[in-house]
Amino acid sequence: MEIKLRQENENDFESVFQLIEKAFEKEEYSDHKEQFLVERLRKSEAFIPELSIVAEIDNKIIGHILFTKLKVVNDSDSFESLALAPVSVLPEFQGKGIGSKLILYGHEIAKGLGYKSVILLGHQDYYARFGYELCEKYNIKMPFDVPAENCMVIALIEDGLKDVSGEVVYPKAFFE
């Protein structure tokens, strides 16, 4: 099973929409609208084409990940970061390391583009294995009420979170 990772292109949009829909179909903690979020984010200023990545097997898209711009803001400063949302894998391919490959590959691309950190809402046990830590360790707060153990951040480079603190400001597309 050879997995090819590459940047998403316009011809992939319909396949990715269906993939995301299927990936979250049975997720308990989902509003089942992640595919619409991706559509909105693609049209927003937060979109970075190189960080919309698909995983393929035999030219069939089986996974997708999206990183978009966000900011961490405090009284005196603003820091650019990335949001990881969502990571999607077709149900029949889940548990085979495809999500992990997408995350690690996305981190490398993001680092190459000069980004220093990634923030997400997700399962603590899953994302900790990639080096994600709790946001509260860095005094980074979410703009809405969510359990602290689900708010996570990773520095992509050494000192990538040095002096970063404040409230996360998501792009408007997250809330439309």
Score class of each variant (00 low, 15 high):
I154F: 00
L113N: 04
A148Q: 11
F144H: 05
I154E: 02
V118E: 07
L120Q: 03
M152G: 01
E136A: 12
F144W: 08
M152C: 03
D145L: 15
E136R: 15
Y115D: 13
A148T: 12
I119Y: 02
K116C: 09
A155F: 05
Y138A: 07
G122M: 09
Q124C: 08
I119S: 02
M142A: 14
K116N: 13
V153H: 00
M142R: 11
I140H: 00
P143H: 04
L113C: 09
G114Y: 04
L121M: 08
G131M: 10
R129Q: 09
N139V: 15
P143I: 11
I140K: 02
E133Q: 12
V146D: 05
G122S: 07
G114Q: 08
Q124M: 10
K116T: 15
D145Y: 05
Y132M: 08
Y132E: 04
A128S: 10
Y115Q: 13
Y132R: 05
K141S: 10
E136K: 15
M142E: 09
E133A: 07
G131V: 12
Y127N: 04
A155G: 11
G114T: 14
F144D: 05
D125V: 02
Y138K: 06
F130Q: 04
A155H: 06
L113M: 12
A128G: 01
G122L: 10
L120T: 03
I140L: 08
L134R: 11
P143Y: 03
C135D: 07
Y132F: 14
L120N: 00
P143V: 13
E133W: 02
H123D: 12
Y132T: 07
P143D: 06
M152R: 05
I154H: 00
I154R: 03
Y138W: 12
L113K: 08
G122N: 04
E136S: 15
L120C: 03
E136N: 14
E133G: 05
D145T: 14
F144Q: 07
M142I: 12
Y115I: 14
C135W: 03
E136I: 15
V153M: 04
I154D: 01
N139S: 14
A148F: 11
Y115M: 13
C151N: 09
Q124H: 10
M152N: 01
V153Y: 01
A128V: 10
S117F: 06
D145Q: 12
L120I: 11
M152E: 02
R129V: 08
L121P: 00
K141L: 15
S117N: 14
C151R: 10
D125R: 01
Y126R: 06
H123Q: 09
Y138R: 06
N139H: 14
F144N: 06
I119E: 02
L120S: 01
E136T: 15
I154A: 02
R129K: 14
Y127I: 14
S117C: 09
P143M: 10
D125Q: 03
A155L: 08
E133H: 03
K116M: 11
I154K: 05
M142K: 10
N139P: 06
L134G: 08
E149I: 12
F144T: 10
A155I: 10
R129H: 03
V153E: 02
H123Y: 04
A155K: 11
V146Y: 10
Q124E: 12
V118D: 03
H123S: 04
I154P: 00
E133F: 02
C135V: 13
L121T: 05
K116D: 10
K141D: 09
P143N: 06
I140S: 01
E149T: 10
E149F: 05
N150T: 14
C135M: 15
P143F: 05
